[in-house]
Amino acid sequence: MKINLEKKGDVSVAHITGKLDTNTALFYENEIFPLIDVQPEKNAAVQVSTALKLVLELQGMDYVSSAGLRVLIITAKKIKSKNGSLILSGMQKQIKNIFDISGLSTIFQIVPSLEEALSKI
């Protein structure tokens, strides 16, 4: 799995490619959670660039297991606790199927494209 981070204005975009599963979930946690957990008072410069507006761009993600869903759910809980917003974009059909089965399609905001995510967040 690869994660490329970029900033689009005040929105953090994480492009995730490959497999999000038991063996890559920790890598995801290490890359994404610090963006959300950063304490603004400790670093004022980061305050505006925290991931309180986060788009996970999943066009290149071809596999997700329950271990991957687990870290995505934690991401959503963390962002909600900070009154931030999270959108998932570009999800492949087989991944969307797993979200539907797991009841996550109603919990996450899911849009077809990154452009749409950026306009809605």
């Binding site: 297991s65 329950s66 271990a67 869903l69 687990r70 759910i73 934690i74 959503a76 809980k77 909600k80 797993i98 089965i101 797991s102 009841g103 919990i107």
Partner: peptide, 18 residues
């Protein structure tokens, strides 16, 4: 129970459900 909200949703237990 997959009809839970984000706050109610427990982490884990989804594997066998899938």
């Amino acid at each position: 129970d997959i009809k839970k909200s984000l706050d109610e949703m427990k982490i884990g237990g989804l594997g066998i459900h899938i």
